[in-house]
Design a protein around this nucleic acid. Structure first.
Lengths: 198, 198
DNA sequence: TCATTTATGTAGTGATCTGTACATAATTGG
DNA sequence: CCAATTATGTACAGATCACTACATAAATGA
């Protein structure tokens, strides 16, 4: 199936990682096809043959992102034994990952398409939907915890979920603005002290 | 001084307000000069004669914004009798203003240039500096309160300032993503419950 | 009245954007 | 060896970008 025809001269996965990195740093509209071909080390027709168009490449880059770097906070949330530990871990992983000097600062899903032309509304909606999933997962985890007695009866789980997703996404702006890791972790300490009293 | 020459046929202030609105909604790079001339009801040469260039128009629009809609949360912070009441009011004004159906959702300073090309780095830095001022004002207000005994001795004012600016900016993302006013106010309730115990 | 000054509308400029046509290179199947 | 297939590099197409040249309109000062 793969054999026929001239073989590809570049590593598709490596090229996709390079594209992810550029989109992560400069956003969808802040990145030109020339930026991409340069970063990926290939010419325009090779890019189009392998990834169809800019939008498809971006979507694939985002999928890679949430499967790797971007998914770490959500995985931390899921894997913790209690919802409190989960949210604490989610925020700390977020604060730590997005002040890593080896990667761009802040979350790609939060930052890569906050502003866009009308023509790229779909791209904005695509990332907004992923952010909405952050909220939905938090909400579901809190509701389950409430049912299990981990939270005081009558806790406003919707409000709490919106609060923690506000902090989660807000941290990306702070990281992009140059906040240090210790500062962000101090902000997480404060956020966790808002936890409802038992 | 104003007399000589053909008089301007449009209201400069009204045109600036229209430009502010478009930039607020679509961001700096998400707005084209064609979008602007259309919204302002003037032709391109009139725009350039009155506002020099796109960047100068944007900066003037942002100055108008912080003097009007965008400055309300900061004014609420300054005018409150205590720092706790100030931060509470700042967040509530923010949550209320940015879910007003008459205006774009979320803060222009937070959202209008989160992603940009290398060529527009200055625009990004310009808004980042305004966001840094939000943090600095919070920090100064908290430090003064600490000195006045409004806060427990040893309170981490830097961490607390970073936390509340994270919530402040994070609310804009939530508002842009369609969160309702009640939801944002519930998030503010949670944020205020993180206030250090006396 | 008439030169001077400023604003306006038309109709462009060159640069950059995303995406492609096309000739050629490199592989496989027969 | 040859046809079929796929990838590559050059070079460019068409649209849109920010911005402007230029002729003309509408005001003032002398």
């Amino acid at each position: 199936m793969a054999g026929r025809g001239r073989p590809r001269r570049f590593d598709r996965d490596a090229a996709l990682r390079a594209a992810m990195r550029v989109f992560w740093e400069h956003g969808y509209e802040g990145t030109s096809m020339a930026d991409l071909t340069s970063a990926m080390g290939i010419n325009s027709p090779s890019l189009y043959a392998a990834f169809s168009c800019k939008e498809a490449l971006f979507r694939e880059a985002v999928e890679l992102y949430v499967r790797t770097d971007g998914g770490a906070p959500q995985r931390a949330l899921r894997e913790a034994p209690t919802v409190r530990a989960g949210i604490d871990a989610m925020l700390r992983v977020n604060a730590t990952a997005y002040t890593d000097p080896e990667t761009p600062r802040g979350c790609m899903v939060v930052l890569a398409a906050t502003n866009h032309t009308e023509a790229n509304r779909d791209i904005g909606d695509f990332l907004a939907e992923l952010r909405r999933q952050d909220l939905a997962e938090l909400r579901a985890r809190l509701d389950a915890a409430l049912a299990d007695g981990e939270l005081p009866a009558g806790t406003d789980t919707a409000g709490l979920a919106r609060f923690y997703v506000t902090v989660l996404h807000g941290l990306s702006i702070q990281a992009r603005d140059g906040a240090g890791r210790d500062e962000l972790l101090a902000a997480v300490d404060a956020a966790m002290s808002a936890w409802p009293a038992p």
